[in-house]
């Protein structure tokens, strides 16, 4: 944390970047268009659908270069500048190309006190890159995340805006990285309510394959 306060430089985005997505790929399929129009119909004005449409575009193109943001704006009929302002406001929209797997390691609040930085530094050392950077093979980007809303199962991380991995420790990180290298993204994991364990003997959901409990959090070796 705190890099910005010591080196407070705000870079300017490339104002005339080369197009990354070729024109023939820079289109939505008719199904995608239909989906976007459904979202548009959910709001009094089309603007409301911009966040969903940006999500769809990010899933399709893996990130949001300017031409994609422009495409989204055109598809829902809002000014390009507005869509661009929205895209840069939110942290989960990737404005530049990231690794195949983006590891958002939470270090905020509870995670800080329960070893979030240990995990962040462990992953950084293991992958040989700093937070904010992508490994040379393009597989991993490590990011330091603000509170992800899983404080009871700290430390934890999120994989590419998708599944949460709870109750992290070094072994778990090792296994996770190996699995991701093989292209296996962990399934959704349900975290059991302590009271369910007492009253129902475990997780209440029968339809999830991956289940974890809240456990005693690890002792943080480094606080920051």
């Amino acid at each position: 944390m705190g890099d910005f306060i010591k080196h407070p430089f705000v870079d300017m985005p490339d104002r005339n970047p080369e197009q990354v997505i070729p024109n023939d790929q820079l289109v939505f399929t008719s199904e995608e268009k239909k989906q976007i129009q459904t979202w548009v119909s959910h709001y009094p004005t089309a603007d409301g659908a911009v966040m969903r449409a940006l999500w769809l575009a990010q899933e399709k193109f893996s990130f949001l270069p300017p031409e994609v943001i422009k495409l989204v704006a055109a598809e829902i009929g809002i000014p390009y500048a507005n869509a661009y302002g929205v895209a840069t406001f939110y942290t989960q929209y990737f404005k530049e190309k990231k690794g195949k797997h983006v590891l958002d390691v939470c270090t905020c609040f509870s995670c800080q006190l329960c070893g979030g930085y240990d995990m962040l530094h462990y992953i950084e050392n293991k992958l040989g890159v700093h937070k904010g950077e992508t490994t040379k093979d393009g597989l991993f980007t490590i990011q330091e995340a603000e509170c992800l809303g899983a404080c009871g199962s700290a430390p934890m991380l999120q994989i590419t805006n998708g599944p949460f991995v709870h109750n992290l420790n070094k072994d778990k990180v090792d296994a996770l990285l190996d699995a991701l290298r093989e292209g296996k993204v962990p399934a959704f994991t349900s975290v059991t309510l302590p009271q369910d364990e007492d009253e129902m003997g475990g997780n209440r959901r029968t339809d999830v394959s991956s289940v974890e409990s809240y456990i005693v959090p690890p002792i943080s070796e480094t606080v920051s």
Partner: peptide, 21 residues
């Protein structure tokens, strides 16, 4: 004209055109 927007967030904010505009 909708040619300008504030980009980024917080203390990084500043007005800018979207790329290519």
């Amino acid at each position: 004209s909708h040619q300008l927007t504030i980009i980024e967030r917080g203390v990084r904010n500043y007005p800018m055109t979207p790329p290519g505009v």
